[in-house]
Amino acid sequence: MEISVSGSEHDVVISLHGAFLFNSHQHFRSILTEHLERNEGQDRLVFDLRQTDQIDSAGLGMLLLARQSAAERKRTIVLRGARGQVQRMLAISKFETLFTVEP
């Protein structure tokens, strides 16, 4: 998985490219450290999933960990642009009830 980060006044946008699977834990650990635990003033952390080809249950679990971390810091996680297999996995897991989901 490759990660790119951009930002605006209110959002940090983290784009996940490729497969977000059980072997992505170190990448995700760096996200938690660099962009969630260190609050730079933005209210929302947006995961841009348009370029994410595949996700598994571990990837879903890591998103839930990010949600937990964000809630403790009164920040919001947004899942944006999921498609294909990723969109189906989010729907199966009813993530629309847990996250802000944007097309």
Partner: peptide
């Protein structure tokens, strides 16, 4: 618990 970060893998396999 739907918010739990683990324990989904076998259910997804079965599905």
């Amino acid at each position: 618990d739907p918010c739990c970060a683990y324990g989904r893998g076998l259910a997804l396999t079965a599905q």
